[in-house]
Design a protein around this nucleic acid. Structure first.
Length: 594
RNA sequence: UGGGAGAUCGUCUAACGGUAGGACAACGGACUCUGACUCCGUUUAUCUAGGUUCGAAUCCUAGUCUCCCAGCCA
């Protein structure tokens, strides 16, 4: 596939064995395809460059799937690079989390790098820019610098320090590196154009003084490179061919190119060769092309690291991996699957249009993936006792159930059945609404995998609440009997009261009750839109085969939804299940519309 | 007249001067020992106004609307 020429699909003849899934043809893949076809690149190289200052969220999934996915599709590779240029804000805890999340999503990196691996190269590159008269040391304070920068509509003014000699700049920058100056007292700036319409070109800072220990380099550096400088050069150092990023970096591209072109690593091996040799890194500098795409926005979600962190810090959720969080680890714990998330990204496509994806699209992708792969089990979340009166008190049998209705390869399991069952309270109605297909007084319904039961009696407590149903099972309708084919309107699920295992079931819903929690135009803060019902914990009953599952096992609880045994709290003797998503429920929709 | 980007079914997304297509959603139906899944069918779109052209979503002109940029954050 990787050598496929960029030829248009000119073949109009009946193509034999039509590809199952049409090849993705978004604008980025078109560029990649053309670059490969034209020989501009022999192989493509990408990178995923998160800053380790938080955990990855659903928005990052798009970047990950694109960076790693495209590299994989075209037979290239993708590096995972931690963009650790701002010590103090970053934390090794997040580095481990990011690695874990990327792997979980199904991707592996060619090399694991840190921007800090290149600090020495970056420093030499800065020296070169100074020597070339393209960078200078500035003494302006942050406030002054802002003042000199001008505004969106007015040009900026040159800093009074802009004209320093190369020798003076060199001396000053070396002393910055030596730690002679206090934090914030000086910066190294690119000398570009203070009147540029693009604010990024008004002599952007390249280095700042920050005497803060760094998680990788300790206190080796009192100065740290800025994003634009570090990122562009890191890409070039790693030989990246296509540097994919989101839209807001579009107007950084001229600066990105400026850094790559003016440093010219390929033409100046002295900048990196000694460093590469000392570190044992194979470096072949490239001229990377930055391509921007629109980020993934999901309704009912926030994808701001700051806000996600705030939820955790204020205890509004139970941690970064709370199933209500749209962090990747939150979604994972919730029971969402990598395949479902990848499917979502595939469905979205790639473009440069700002967009907001319906949260239901994510849910449907999860359902689609889980429907194929999750074994079925039975569980009752809101139990109502059903006694089968025509069965002996001690009746007990074990029934074989297929684990998946369409996939025999998933095998079968035994489900215990006895005289007293739990059924779902909402599967019985004394006065059924129109169209109700479940149990009613005197009515019949099929007990999944058992046979047809008729409701003979409704037992109530003093308050008039239904506490028990008594019914009879039609022996001729038992599973496997000739009468089993008899049609009844509905089928309901059940568990044997005696055999079922009590389970903590955590029912999750959307964390926010408005589609755009970030939108504060109505004067209400995003915090006020938190859905207090997003987590409900109930005690339910699950069949033994569900209880016995290992942590993080996905199931469909029939007629209820997709659940996962909690990866941290679940134990076979004290099962804990999280609801990832309900089943699509046309009845609830219909009943709700009435 | 600051710079940059973007406007196509409800939502995403295709088209590269030549039949506005797909996915998801919605709606209707079939099937069903999960009101699930699956299957079939239906509805809905080129920001506006001019122009070029045999032919315009696509090219030109003028507007309109939306998003991003004034960190020593990334």
């Amino acid at each position: 596939m990787s050598t496929e020429p960029a030829a248009r699909p000119t073949v109009t003849a009946a193509a034999p064995a039509e590809e199952q899934r049409p090849e993705a043809r978004d604008f980025i893949r078109q560029i990649v395809r053309e670059d490969l076809a034209s020989g501009k690149h022999r192989a493509i190289r990408t990178r995923f460059p998160p800053e380790p200052n938080g955990y990855l969220h659903i928005g990052h999934a798009k970047a990950i799937c694109l960076d790693f996915g495209i590299a994989r599709e075209f037979g290239g590779w993708c590096n995972l690079r931690l963009d650790d240029t701002n010590p103090g804000k970053e934390d090794p805890e997040f580095v481990e989390g990011i690695k874990e999340d990327v792997r979980w999503l199904g991707y592996g990196w060619h090399d694991l790098r840190h921007a800090s691996d290149y600090f020495e190269v970056l420093y030499r590159a800065a020296l070169k820019l100074i020597e070339d008269g393209k960078a200078y040391v500035d003494d302006l304070s942050p406030d002054q610098m802002r003042e000199y920068r001008g505004t969106l509509t007015e040009p900026g003014r040159d800093s009074p320090y802009r004209g320093r000699s190369v020798a003076e700049n060199l001396d000053l920058f070396r002393r910055m590196r030596a730690g002679e100056f206090p934090d914030g007292s000086k910066t190294l700036r690119a000398k570009i154009d203070m009147a540029a319409g693009n604010m990024n070109l008004r002599d952007p800072a390249l280095y700042r003084i920050r005497k803060v220990p760094h998680q990788n380099t300790g206190d080796a550096w009192p100065i740290y490179p800025m994003y634009d400088f570090a990122h562009a050069l890191s890409d070039a150092i790693e030989g990246i061919t296509h540097s994919l990023c989101t839209l807001e970096f579009e107007d950084h591209r001229p600066l990105y190119d400026w850094c790559v072109d003016n440093v010219d690593l390929a033409g100046h091996p002295e900048l990196w060769r000694p460093v590469a040799e000392a570190a044992g890194l194979d470096v072949q500098p490239s001229k990377p092309r930055q391509i921007e795409f629109s980020r993934l926005n999901l309704s009912y979600c926030i994808t701001s690291k700051r806000k996600l962190a705030e939820l955790v810090q204020r205890g509004l959720v139970d941690g970064w991996d709370d199933p209500r969080m749209n962090t990747l680890r939150g979604l994972r714990r919730r029971g969402f699957t990598p395949g479902g998330i990848r499917l979502l990204i595939e469905r979205l496509g790639v473009s440069k249009q700002n967009s907001v994806i319906d949260y239901t699209l994510l849910e449907n992708c999860i359902r689609e993936d889980l429907d194929d792969h999750a074994p079925r089990r039975m569980a009752v979340l809101d139990p109502l006792r059903l006694v089968i009166a025509n069965l002996p008190e001690d009746h007990e049998e074990s029934l074989a159930f297929a684990n998946h209705p369409k996939d025999e390869a998933q095998g079968a399991r035994q489900v215990p059945f006895a005289r007293e069952l739990w059924i779902e309270r909402e599967d019985f109605a004394e006065v059924p609404p129109k169209g109700f297909k479940r149990l009613v007084p005197g009515g019949e319904v099929r007990l999944r995998g058992v046979g047809i039961v008729k409701c003979e009696d409704v037992v109530k407590d003093a308050g008039g609440r239904v506490v028990e149903l008594r019914g009879t099972l039609d022996p001729a309708s038992r599973h496997g009997m000739p009468g089993a084919d008899r049609k009844v309107k509905g089928t309901i699920h059940w568990v044997s009261a005696r055999h079922a295992v009590a389970a903590e079931v955590r029912l999750y819903d959307r964390l926010f009750n408005v589609p755009a929690p970030d939108d504060e135009s109505d004067g209400r803060s995003w915090i006020e839109h938190i859905n207090p019902e997003a987590k409900r914990v109930v005690r339910g009953w699950v069949e033994p085969a569900a209880a016995q599952a290992a942590p993080e096992t996905h199931f469909q609880f029939e007629r209820l939804g997709y659940f996962v045994s909690d990866r941290l709290d679940h134990r076979p003797d004290a099962p804990v299940f999280n609801r990832a998503v309900t089943l699509r429920d046309t009845w609830a929709k219909q009943a709700g519309a009435q």
